[in-house]
Design a protein around this nucleic acid. Sequence first.
DNA 1: CATCCTGAGTCGCCTTTTCGAACTCAGGAG
DNA 2: CTCCTGAGTTCGAAAAGGCGACTCAGGATG
Lengths: 153, 153
Amino acid sequence: MTSVLGKDPRCSIARSLEVLGEKWTLLVVREAFRGRTRFSEFADALGIARDVLSSRLATLVEFGVLERRAYRAEGSRERAEYVLTASGRELVPVLAALNAWGDAYRATEWGPATVYADAQTGEPVSLRFVTESGRILDLDEVTAHPGPAFRNT
Amino acid sequence: MTSVLGKDPRCSIARSLEVLGEKWTLLVVREAFRGRTRFSEFADALGIARDVLSSRLATLVEFGVLERRAYRAEGSRERAEYVLTASGRELVPVLAALNAWGDAYRATEWGPATVYADAQTGEPVSLRFVTESGRILDLDEVTAHPGPAFRNT
DNA sequence: CATCCTGAGTCGCCTTTTCGAACTCAGGAG
DNA sequence: CTCCTGAGTTCGAAAAGGCGACTCAGGATG
């Protein structure tokens, strides 16, 4: 991506996209959530060119979304695997938000592809805005306004 | 982007990214949320090449995220403006999720760039997973599993 | 009327990314 | 010693992005 931010390094969205915004990157992360860990698993699942995959894995590792580890299947030599780090696992909301929007506005005959649920009860869950006191708001009750980064200095 | 989905048209994330995943697109949407409507406003705010902006606006209009309208400032000729549609406004969670992740994992000295709040009370809000019955869950209490699209057929 | 100015693009040329297939490399298996 | 596999790297061609110049429509100016 080579710094999309150029214009505003203060915007957190721009900084996130610097890591996640290149073609294929979020799909690689999606596959990581689906449990893929190996180079060929990602390549086969996505149909991505291998050199591009190589480059995407490298930046995801560089920015701490994935961790590259050596592992050894029995009777086989050492190989690399890529697993989500804590920061990678915190990308669920990003994927869930994209998933929900796609379900709502680009629906297909097949229905929803991924459903998020309470791990305990299996009850379906959705992403909502919640106040600190636990009140759940609708989208139109929420406003975005400039934070510290656009007030100080 | 020319169909990243190739491999899986059933995945809602892939379909969302088909519209939103090209370079600059989400930043254009962010600017739309900040109230920009005119071609030059987007261009100036982002520092994006004008031909690329032209193309991004076209696909956002094509997929119903923005609406292109004619407007006329007094004593000036008719010009175009781009405003968020209902489906565009529902991208808040996507931007909020990216914003939160950037704040958490790519923080800067300046602090958060954008803060989401209850429009009424000003109380800060965050994106959370909520069950249908209104229980708020932590990320690690949520699982993603294949929906209808990966079960039927 | 002729000229200037502005917003909203388009055009052409060059650089950067992506694509796809082929090639390499390291070790275990036969 | 050769074959096989997973994990990449390399290379040429195609697509996308960046940048400055150019166009186009109409209102304002003289």
